[in-house]
């Protein structure tokens, strides 16, 4: 196939080129953008072909679509602002105080925690999807909620006790208060805290719960086992019991400061680190990969930004689908 000899009609009949026009496949889009950039003399033909593909397919082009999307986004943003004003008149009681305490980070302008009104169990739910979130609780304790994680705070938090429910991963820095015990439930494990910094990891795609203690003291209980942790120790649940382990303190302190560091990382190390850092399940397609040595440092960057850099440098193909990530070459 000699692309140099291609005329508009030949491009139109090339299925990869059509996918580029429709932007339905990232690989094709990347390939043709690159090819056209390197062969500017073919641009009149490719442009003609693209115009016809869109015309015969009765489709909008990318910039028209983008314009429509911007309009939609503007309308939804407006609705958000109005909705927020309306909601602030609702009698929030305890949740309101907590909410006020939590309105700190800029992210709260975008994401509003949700209070479920049911008689016995009223929760404020915090959800971090693509970026991590900091939540400041009514007692002054802080929680860093990792990506793809949900934290439920009962409306009764800080009354007689301090209890939280976690799905995903979060780091807790707990204010000492002997009268009101601080507990976190995650999957099969419950952690009881006594003024402390610790981390709980309980993603649904991993079938265990991990608790790491950075400082202070915690008691961890699973279905049929319980143990106390000392700083630097980690336990994970296994079939209702607990297994002791260790964690990488340097990596943990990097995580806290928001520094994601790749040092001469291989493909597997990249996959592991992304899975650890962003709480996504990473799948690596089995294939013979060229050896990869990736170096890079990211400060508080979103998953998509990090992926953009990695793919640019390594030529790997990485696709995100929901909470899963697929690596190809």
């Amino acid at each position: 196939m000699n692309l140099q000899a291609f005329m508009a009609e030949d491009f139109m009949l090339n299925e990869s080129f059509v996918r580029y026009c429709l932007q339905s496949n990232d690989e094709d889009v990347a390939f043709w953008n690159d090819w056209i950039a390197r062969n500017p003399h073919k641009r009149p033909e490719t442009e003609k072909a693209r115009e016809w593909v869109l015309r015969l397919g009765v489709r909008l082009n990318a910039s028209e679509k983008q314009e429509e999307f911007s309009k939609l986004r503007a309308m939804i943003e407006t609705d958000r602002v109005q909705g927020k004003r309306r909601k602030s008149y609702l009698p929030y009681v305890a949740a309101a105080a907590m909410f006020a305490g939590a309105v700190v980070g800029a992210w709260l302008w975008k994401k509003q925690p949700r209070t479920e009104h049911s008689a016995a169990m009223a929760y404020t739910t915090y959800h971090a999807d693509s970026a991590r979130k900091q939540v400041i609780l009514a007692d002054g304790s802080t929680v860093i909620l990792n990506c793809n994680s949900t934290l439920k705070v009962p409306a009764s938090f800080n009354q007689q006790e301090r209890h939280l429910i976690l799905q995903g991963e979060a780091l807790y820095d707990v204010q000492k208060d002997d009268k009101r015990p601080f507990t976190v439930t995650a999957g099969q494990a419950t952690v009881q805290v006594l003024g402390t910094v610790f981390k709980v990891r309980a993603y649904l795609f991993e079938n265990n719960v991990q608790v790491s203690l950075l400082s202070g003291k915690v008691n961890v209980a699973a279905d049929n086992a319980a143990t106390a942790l000392l700083p630097g120790q980690m336990v994970k649940t296994s079939r209702g019991g607990l297994i002791a382990g260790t964690f990488d303190a340097a990596r943990e302190s990097d995580w806290r400061s928001g520094r994601l560091l790749f040092k001469d990382a291989s493909l597997q190390e990249i996959a592991n680190l992304l899975e650890y850092w962003y709480g996504v399940k990473v799948h690596v397609a089995p294939r013979n990969y060229q050896a990869i040595h990736f170096n890079g440092q990211f400060m508080n960057k979103s998953l998509s930004e990090v992926i953009a850099s990695i793919t640019y440098i390594t030529n790997l193909k990485i696709n995100i689908s929901g909470n899963e990530l697929f690596i190809n070459q």
Partner: peptide, 9 residues
Amino acid sequence: QQHNEHGLY
């Protein structure tokens, strides 16, 4: 439905 407009997008 959980107030994350990106889902809608």
